[in-house]
Simulated scan of single mutants.
Amino acid sequence: MSTDRTVSSAAGRSRPGEPVYLVFSDVDETLIHCKSLLDFLDHYFAERHGSRGRRHAAGVRARLAAATAAGMARDEANALYYRAWRGEPVADVWWAGRRWYADRRATGGFFVDATRAALRRHRADGAELVLVSGSFGAVLDPLAEECAAAHVLCTLPEVVDGVLTGEVVGEPVIGEGKRRAVRALLARHPHVDPADCHAYGDHVSDLPMLLEVGHPTVVGESTDLLERLRAARRMSPA
């Protein structure tokens, strides 16, 4: 089904104040080319703690790489990542996220242009954009503002007395966590039919999210994801 036909059928069912449909987009290597969590890890700890921070970030990367190679599930690796932030002041982290975003945005080649263009078309058609990511607000908030995303579904780091504890609130928004987050948002929009909605992802961990909508798109060439979602539209990230 083309975007135009989707809008035509959905618009007839929507009510005033309701989006025509929702568009769910993964972020890393779907909307932007980099892995935001790792890139921001390097940026923040080098900026705030200098050489000690660079060593800390390198150690976290090494532990994550070893855990992933040993078969650790992606949601568990996501939780392991957040433990690296224990003791950091949340306000400093959030302001650093805006500086990181401005730096990366200014270098060019930051966005996956095909995805960004598709999301713009959806918004012009009356859809609401939803970013769905295992990343966190420090990284995602400025991106959501620039893309005019109506919602951000993401992992929530725990904060006590203004300091990150290294734990997360609830479950990481990875894999089945993405499915549950998408379903919860759809439940808040009862006049939106999931069959009219779109979703974009690049990795097999996005599959639960992609299966929740009528129009999934695979960004890139993930063999695992394409094998499991043969009917999906394919889009090159170049």
Rank of each mutant, 00 (worst) to 15 (best):
P19M: 06
V139T: 12
A127E: 06
M1R: 12
E221K: 11
S8E: 14
R104W: 12
L41C: 09
D103G: 10
G71P: 06
C197L: 04
S25G: 04
S9K: 14
A11M: 13
V169N: 06
P157F: 05
S135Y: 05
I174Q: 09
A184S: 14
A181Q: 04
L22T: 02
V139K: 01
R105E: 10
F24Q: 01
R234N: 09
L153P: 05
H198L: 14
G201R: 06
D206I: 05
A57Q: 02
S25H: 02
A184Y: 02
S8Q: 13
A138K: 02
M72L: 15
G220D: 07
A114L: 06
R63P: 01
L211M: 11
V173P: 05
H198M: 09
T223F: 11
L129S: 00
R48N: 00
L129A: 07
G87P: 08
A124Q: 13
A66F: 03
L207W: 08
G17M: 07
V130G: 02
R120C: 06
V27R: 04
G214E: 11
A124K: 12
W100T: 00
L140C: 10
L131P: 01
L37F: 10
A118N: 04
A46S: 05
H151L: 00
S25V: 01
S25T: 11
D42N: 11
A148Y: 09
E176V: 12
R48Y: 00
V192S: 00
R13C: 07
K35A: 11
W100L: 00
D92G: 12
E29M: 14
L31P: 10
R188V: 01
D4T: 14
F136K: 03
E146D: 15
Y81F: 15
G177L: 05
R55N: 07
M72I: 07
A58M: 09
V192R: 00
G162Y: 02
C34D: 14
S135G: 15
G162W: 01
A58N: 06
D28K: 03
T30C: 07
P194L: 02
Y200D: 03
A65P: 00
L38C: 07
D206L: 06
E47P: 01
R233E: 14
R86E: 13
F24T: 02
L156N: 11
R230A: 15
T68Y: 08
A77H: 05
R54W: 01
S51G: 08
R105I: 05
V60E: 02
C147L: 15
D125R: 13
A117L: 13
A65Y: 05
D4V: 12
G137V: 10
A199Q: 08
